[in-house]
Design a protein around this nucleic acid. Sequence first.
DNA 1: CCATCATCATTCCAAATTGGAATACCAGAT
DNA 2: ATCTGGTATTCCAATTTGGAATGATGATGG
Lengths: 294, 294
Amino acid sequence: MDKLECIKVFRHVARLESFTATAIELNTTQGAVSKKIAWLEGDLGFTLFHRNSRKISLTSAGKQYLGFCHELVEKMTLTEQLINKQLSLAVGTLKISAPSAFATQRLAVPIRKFLIANPEVKIDISVDDKHADLYRDDIDIAIRASYLKDSGLKAKKLLDHDVCYFASPDYLKNNGTPVVPEELSKHTCLTYSLSTTSNVWQINKKKFMVRELFTSDSPEMLVKMAILGCGIAAMPKWMVQESFKMNQLTELFADHQKGSLPMYAVYKNSDYLPYRIRAFVDFIASYFESELVN
Amino acid sequence: MDKLECIKVFRHVARLESFTATAIELNTTQGAVSKKIAWLEGDLGFTLFHRNSRKISLTSAGKQYLGFCHELVEKMTLTEQLINKQLSLAVGTLKISAPSAFATQRLAVPIRKFLIANPEVKIDISVDDKHADLYRDDIDIAIRASYLKDSGLKAKKLLDHDVCYFASPDYLKNNGTPVVPEELSKHTCLTYSLSTTSNVWQINKKKFMVRELFTSDSPEMLVKMAILGCGIAAMPKWMVQESFKMNQLTELFADHQKGSLPMYAVYKNSDYLPYRIRAFVDFIASYFESELVN
DNA sequence: CCATCATCATTCCAAATTGGAATACCAGAT
DNA sequence: ATCTGGTATTCCAATTTGGAATGATGATGG
């Protein structure tokens, strides 16, 4: 027997002080109401109503229990409404994980705009170059360069980075400056360990397997090692633009067609995605899209 | 589908993070667990778990809802235990209704003893010569002289009053002093309106229908009217003992056998009578019983 | 990359439960 | 004493539930 159902019926009976009236109000039969109350009393271990062929009245225990039932139903309704509201409106705290360079250099501006547009949303961004576990760490959205292997996660592409190749002037002086991609095989390369295709570089639509000397999950570390003359690296252009200007790094294959590196917003796949997540992903995606146009 | 049952299953699943393990723990099948969680999710309108062929994990909504479920189950258990405790132990407030003369002159002493013997019980005594409605006025016990007509109420006899007949010396001087009961018919009598047999007086096992001049629901009012010489009245002896000593009243038919007037403790008939009620009724009844012996 | 395996979802059917209608029952009202 | 308005009970049809088997899916490990 459904206790919650019985409790709801009990509240009606207590208000109307009649099984028959309750049955009419609830579009059922008096017999059904009687059975439910009787079952509830049996389950609780005490009687809820004094009965009398003419009328019924709550026992003291019934009165006390009624108070609890009112509380219960109200609390339940409010809780369910609250959760549903949080799922359907842009409210709550958005936990984001993003790699440090991208977060500071590309994400800060659109996040600021998003916060202004969605004043009910807070953002808690965890800057982390590792791939966080969205489930274990309770993260809503992770910004990632590499493709998702994990099912149960959905990904939306945010943008394609223009990849560029570079090395330090010192390195090039010592090892020669490659002019055609085929020359890459003679050089040592610095690769990004989290990319599934870290040692396969694409230039002019052709793939070149490169020799890894050093690999890291930190793009900044790779840039730093390149500046120190450790080898040739490939990174999104915006990440090294400053270093080009300061002559710490020199761009290679500048007029060749290079591959692009996609960036994804990854989130848990769920039938009822909290709206703040969808709102953020859509906002960021369209932000980068319009940036492309401008 | 029983939502409360689903909630209980949900708590297990959330703890064990597995439908299969939950099924084993609850001695049911994995299919049943799956159905229950699926139904609950449908009812709530949001998903509780992220699923994955290898493991499941709570969604953020699921986490939030789980908190509510814990609260709910705990509150429910506590409430039911509390009410059952109040029904089975001598605790709580006992609402008593008693007629004023009896309350002050016969009940005060045993009530004091009861309160000492049952320190967890409070007493709220409503002194009222009228018959209170135990249901409407939320009264646990009514002390009454007259028999119960109401079913749904139970009564326990506390004692038999020794009834005595009396009138004022003045009245007897003016109207003559009856010596045999048969003479009552020549007198005017003061009767107690709440007694069903108010105008039928019993002496030497014979019944006499008396002429009512004045009737009231207040015994004290009847005594007062008798003192003023209004007629002959019948009352429990303890109520007029003082007036005899002060020569305000004179006893009649002193050596005849008079009827006795029973006094009852009346309480609502219930399968699960709160224990404080039974405790009080038993206590008072045995108090008057032992008083009789002494 | 593929086969395996653990896990959840679904399906189908038997069994248990529930709800409705009629009836029994009960006590207050007249 | 009878009538009446209400609750309890009974019986059966209809619905729901639970179990076992099966299907589907994706992580895991070679």
